[in-house]
Amino acid sequence: MKAKRLMNSISGFALPVLFGVVIAALWQTEVLHSWMGTDTITLPLPTRIGEIISSNWDTIMGHVKITVTVALGGLMFGSILGYGIAIIATVFSKWGAGGLTIVSAFNAIPLVALAPVINNWTRDLSGDVSVRSTIAKILVVTISCTAAMSVNAFRGLTELKPFSEDLMKSYAAKRITVFTKLRLPNSIPYIFTALRVSVPASVIGALVTEYFAEETVGVGRQIRENIVKGQYPTAWAYIAIACAIGIIMYVILMIAEKLILKRRKSRG
């Protein structure tokens, strides 16, 4: 049993790492370049990317801060909004599911279409370009994170354990009690399901919306500027940083999920 678990953790952790190491080795030795028919300017070596990151650490972190602020801000507002919509849909169950379809439809609008439109809307919000630009970016990410939360949270709030709702009714529990004691706790795992979708979505949303922002800042914007200017090594440095942001945020989510759901299980 113990050996099996060990094997599982090895295959779950060591194999992906090994894969990464092999790719990095092929990349560094330019084998990857010959396979893909490219060169070290378009696809710079990992060591060169690393050099650029380390020698520009402060500048890069400045951009990271901006991108993460937008991603987290949008994620937070989008999730709260999504959960709110799910609650409303649960309370007004007759048209709740239909309303959620509309929210999902909103989510289907491509970011590239949404970002310029929202930029135009927010143009008069503030005289300070960094304020209105940040608001515009957070709004885009908010919209891209709302649907996942509302759809999943709605399931969590409505798909209860068989008979549990009847049991509550037999206790003559009020609707509000059913909500706080039964529906709310039942929705917690679904919140994490939603976050697994919307955390990466928030990072992608933040990167893409920077392309259209009025301010020339953020990791995504630096990728675009450097590619158009032909500065591929620098662009790759920012691409690597963008990947790191996504991975780190996802890992934090996984750890939080494990801790919170574990506590729930042991309590229950």
């Binding site: 060169r48 050099e51 650029i52 020698s55 520009n56 500048t59 500065q231 090594p233 620098t234 440095a237």
Partner: peptide, 9 residues
């Protein structure tokens, strides 16, 4: 005015 982060460039 071209500001580059890549030392080699």
């Amino acid at each position: 005015y071209i500001i580059l982060e890549d030392a080699a460039a």
